[in-house]
């Protein structure tokens, strides 16, 4: 079914142009939050309106789109956004990371390394890394302008003082090209090392907060830490129960009310590919039974 009443990829050309300008500015100043005139989208805030607008501005009819929600291709958010663009842009969609040219993601970076020519679009709820430390927008902007980032370390200090280690496990703040401190959106800190030196273009869209920021390919991105408490991209200390991978980020799934649990790859595309290749985990039919 097609909806001819809509322009290609839902947004009108003038809006896309406005967003592209913001994207270009964001790419020119990596990590800097560019204000843009975010539009009402036919979905509620918090469902990825920022990401959807960025994706719409990037899509061409030849593109192949993949949508990820918490690593999975088959959860509500991913399915509805994918359908949205199937209807309004008639682009091809795929669940395979390597086949996609544009990937919109919520809270994960795919396990498979991205390549040049791919675009990764993040959905961002709160773009301002300093927001919970300094509530005044006028002040946080000035802090960015003057590179006053001592406060960010105060947060990490408080973590260590209270928990004995940096307890921030997602939306872990990073410094981009030695200049801007950036919120990488709520990806697990396990994914932080993939932000830096990535071959793909990474774009961040926050719809409600009306901000766009970006990382061009091969940008230098460093996770903030202390000399004596270095950054640690941790994950659950298990192997995937379905594909046996020991290096991928895992979801813990409770399977009954007696405390049984399994660990599975959060990146479903990665996990299925591995299973198709014959890798097995603890719960695989022909694997050694637990």
């Amino acid at each position: 079914m097609t909806d001819q009443a809509y322009n290609f990829a839902y947004l009108d050309e003038a809006t896309k142009r406005m967003i592209r300008r913001a994207l270009l500015k964001g790419l020119a100043i990596p990590g800097y939050q560019v204000p843009f005139a975010s539009r009402e989208m036919p979905m509620p805030y918090g469902w990825g309106t920022g990401g959807v607008q960025v994706t719409a501005a990037c899509l061409t009819p030849e593109d192949t789109l993949k949508v990820i929600d918490q690593g999975a291709d088959d959860t509500t958010n991913a399915v509805s956004i994918r359908k949205f663009f199937e209807r309004t842009a008639q682009v091809q969609t795929s669940e395979t990371t390597a086949e996609a040219t544009v990937i919109q993601t919520r809270h994960r970076i795919p396990e498979v390394a991205l390549t040049e020519g791919q675009i990764l679009v993040y959905q961002v709820p709160i773009p301002e890394p300093l927001r919970f430390l300094e509530p005044r927008e006028s002040e946080t902007r000035r802090m960015h302008a003057l590179e006053e980032y001592g406060l960010m370390h105060v947060k990490l200090y408080e973590d260590i003082a209270r928990h004995g280690a940096i307890a921030t496990s997602y939306a872990y703040p990073v410094k981009v090209e030695g200049r801007y401190v950036m919120d990488p959106s709520p990806i697990p800190k396990f994914d932080n090392p993939k932000l830096g030196g990535n071959a793909a273009i990474q774009l961040f869209g926050a719809g409600r907060e009306q901000r766009i920021y970006a990382l061009p390919p091969y940008t230098d991105v460093v996770s903030l830490d202390f000399e004596d408490h270095p950054f640690d991209p941790s994950k659950a200390d298990h192997a995937c129960d379905l594909c046996g991978s020991e290096v991928s980020y895992l979801d813990e799934v409770i399977t009954d009310d007696k405390g049984s649990r399994i660990f599975v790859c959060s990146d479903t595309s990665y996990c299925t590919t591995r299973q198709d290749e014959g890798h097995t985990g603890r719960l695989s039919p022909e694997g050694e039974a637990a």
């Binding site: 006053e148 001592g150 408490h229």
Partner: peptide, 11 residues
């Protein structure tokens, strides 16, 4: 805070 603001990075 002031120490960290002027670059102290050793907890």
């Amino acid at each position: 805070e002031r120490l960290m603001a002027i670059g102290a990075r050793n907890y």
